[in-house]
């Protein structure tokens, strides 16, 4: 995988770059599911331990499906997600991105006191809350956080002008520039 994959993901949904025929574009959940199945085969071929491969797939599945769950009928840009995986400098890397509403806008509907993207990310990774209330949801990103930590993985999750960096610890901070929807970069050095 190209080392500029993060840049490619970040710019993928810009009108001048959008390529509906890209191998990384999953317009629908079904396409994402099929490519997730294929990723598991790839991870096992790359000698990743089965237990890590399955957890990693569950994490990617949660993040990718979140994009579809929370943006159905409300996509800001193109429908669907960007989903790429492979090795970058021998580090296994999975990148997911969408041009959706982002975490702040989604959660503010159910937690109006949220003030900014940082508070929204802190809430998303730590509180049982879902933008789709009254449906009882909101466990996906807590699962992601716990298993990134337990398995020695690394996650950079961007939404709006904030970034959550998760590994053995959690750091949520403002970043320069902003990303419209959500951009997640998962990495694992064990491969």
């Amino acid at each position: 995988m190209n080392k500029d994959i993060e840049k490619q993901a970040r710019e993928f949904f810009a009108a001048e770059n959008f390529d509906k025929n890209s191998e990384y574009y999953c317009k629908t959940r079904d396409i994402f599911q099929a490519r997730l199945d294929k990723m598991i085969i790839y991870l096992l071929k790359e000698q990743l331990k089965e237990e890590d491969a399955y957890i990693l797939s569950a994490i990617a599945g949660e993040i990718g499906n979140n994009s579809f769950d929370h943006n159905l009928g409300s996509w800001v840009g193109e429908i669907g997600i960007f989903f790429a995986y492979g090795k970058v400098n021998n580090v296994l890397t999975i990148v997911l991105a969408d041009a959706g509403q982002g975490v702040y806008k989604t959660l503010k509907k159910v937690k109006p006191e949220l003030k900014n993207d940082i508070e929204a990310l802190r809430t998303a990774f730590n509180e049982k809350i879902s933008g789709r209330a009254p449906e009882s949801r909101g466990n996906g990103l807590k699962f992601v956080k716990a298993n990134i930590k337990d398995r020695g993985m690394h996650l950079d999750f961007y939404s709006g002008s904030a970034k959550a960096e998760l590994n053995y610890a959690e750091k949520i901070e403002a970043v320069n520039g902003s990303y419209q929807g959500c951009l997640a970069i998962i990495s694992l050095k064990k491969i």
């Binding site: 949660e62 769950d69 466990n139 996906g140």
Partner: peptide, 10 residues
């Protein structure tokens, strides 16, 4: 079962 995530399980 190879991969189960909390969304499906919930």
């Amino acid at each position: 079962v190879k991969v189960m995530a909390p969304s499906w399980a919930d």
